[in-house]
Simulated scan of single mutants.
Amino acid sequence: MNPWPYSRWVAHRGAGKLAPENTLAALRLGAHYGYRMFECDVKLSSDGVPFLLHDATLQRTTNGHGTAGDKDWSELSRLDAGSWHSRTFAGEPLPAFEQVARFCTGNGFLLNVEIKPTPGHEAETGSLVAQHAARLWHGQAVAPLLSSFRPESLQAAMAAEPQLPRALLLDTLWDGWFGVARALGCVGIVCNHALWSEETVATVKGAGMRCLSYTVNDEWAASRLIALGTDGIITDRVDLFSPA
C-alpha cells in the first residue's frame, strides 16, 4: 500500500457547524482548532468558475435563491453566505475555489475536494475542477484528494488530470461500487461511517485503497473506526476531537 500523505482528522466543510460551512471563515476556524486538512464542496458557476457550495440551490446557506449553477460568478460572489449562520459572520462571501487553494497552499494545509456537480453537469464539473486543482496545486508536495458520489465526475476528472488522487464517495454499498472504484483508479473510499466493518475495511485495504468516513461527530463512532484501522475521519466536531 502506498504511503498516505493525508491527515486522519479532517474538518468537514471547514469547521463543521461552528462557522458558515464552505467559507474561508470556516477554514480559518478549523485551523484555529488545530486542523491541517479540510473537506469542502466545489461546483461550477454558469460561466465555469469553481466555487464552494454544498447544495444545488442557494437559499439554505446564502441570501440568494434558485439553482446556484444557473448564476454567473459575478452574481454569486456578491451573496452573503454568513448571515444564515449567525451575526458574527454576516457578509461572509462564497469563496472561489482559487481563494481556498491560496489559503491552503500558503499555510501548508491539505484538502479533500468533493466534486459537487449541478445535476446534468457531472462530467463538465469533474473535468474543470480537476484542471483547476492541477493548476492551483502545481509544484505542491501533496495534491488535493478529489472525491465525488458521482462516478461520471470522477471519470471526467481522471480523463482530465489522471495524476490527481481520487476517492469514491458512498452513502450505501450499491451493487458494483467496488469494481467502479477500481476502474476509476481510486486511492480511497469515503463512506458513511456506519458502513465500515471488518469485512469492508479488509476488502478496500486488500485492493490498496484507504478507508475514510463521514460525518463522525461522536466519540464512540470515532473509537470504532480507529479500532477498525480506517484512515480518515471527517468531522463537524472540531471542538471535540483534537487532530493531534
Results as ranks from 00 to 15, higher is better:
2 N>S: 13
2 N>V: 13
3 P>N: 11
6 Y>A: 07
7 S>C: 14
10 V>P: 07
10 V>Q: 08
14 G>Q: 11
16 G>V: 07
17 K>E: 11
17 K>P: 00
22 N>L: 14
23 T>W: 01
29 L>E: 05
30 G>M: 06
31 A>L: 01
32 H>A: 13
32 H>T: 13
33 Y>I: 04
34 G>C: 14
34 G>Y: 07
37 M>E: 15
38 F>V: 00
38 F>L: 05
38 F>T: 10
40 C>R: 02
42 V>I: 12
43 K>Y: 04
45 S>E: 01
46 S>Y: 05
46 S>H: 04
48 G>E: 03
51 F>C: 09
53 L>M: 13
53 L>S: 06
60 R>A: 07
61 T>I: 02
63 N>C: 13
63 N>R: 08
64 G>M: 02
64 G>D: 12
65 H>T: 07
66 G>N: 08
69 G>I: 00
70 D>K: 06
70 D>L: 02
72 D>W: 00
77 S>L: 06
78 R>Y: 06
79 L>H: 01
84 W>P: 02
86 S>Y: 12
87 R>D: 14
88 T>F: 05
88 T>Y: 14
89 F>M: 08
89 F>G: 09
90 A>W: 15
94 L>G: 02
94 L>T: 03
96 A>H: 10
96 A>P: 04
97 F>W: 09
97 F>N: 06
101 A>R: 01
102 R>W: 10
104 C>S: 06
107 N>I: 02
108 G>W: 12
109 F>N: 10
109 F>Q: 10
110 L>P: 07
112 N>W: 07
114 E>D: 04
115 I>E: 10
115 I>S: 08
123 A>W: 04
129 V>D: 07
131 Q>R: 15
132 H>V: 15
133 A>C: 13
134 A>V: 07
136 L>P: 10
139 G>N: 03
140 Q>W: 14
144 P>N: 07
145 L>K: 07
146 L>K: 01
146 L>Q: 04
147 S>M: 08
153 S>W: 03
160 A>Q: 01
160 A>V: 05
160 A>P: 05
163 Q>C: 12
168 L>D: 08
168 L>M: 01
170 L>Q: 00
171 D>W: 12
172 T>V: 12
174 W>M: 07
178 F>C: 06
179 G>R: 04
180 V>R: 02
182 R>A: 12
183 A>S: 15
184 L>Y: 06
185 G>N: 12
187 V>S: 00
188 G>T: 00
190 V>E: 11
194 A>C: 06
194 A>S: 09
194 A>I: 09
196 W>V: 09
197 S>P: 07
198 E>H: 13
201 V>M: 03
201 V>A: 04
202 A>L: 08
202 A>I: 11
203 T>P: 00
204 V>Q: 02
204 V>P: 01
207 A>V: 04
207 A>N: 08
210 R>F: 13
211 C>V: 11
212 L>W: 14
213 S>V: 02
216 V>L: 11
216 V>D: 13
216 V>H: 01
221 A>R: 14
221 A>W: 08
227 A>I: 00
228 L>T: 01
229 G>Q: 03
230 T>D: 02
230 T>F: 08
235 T>Y: 05
235 T>M: 09
236 D>F: 05
237 R>Q: 09
238 V>H: 01
239 D>V: 12
240 L>A: 15
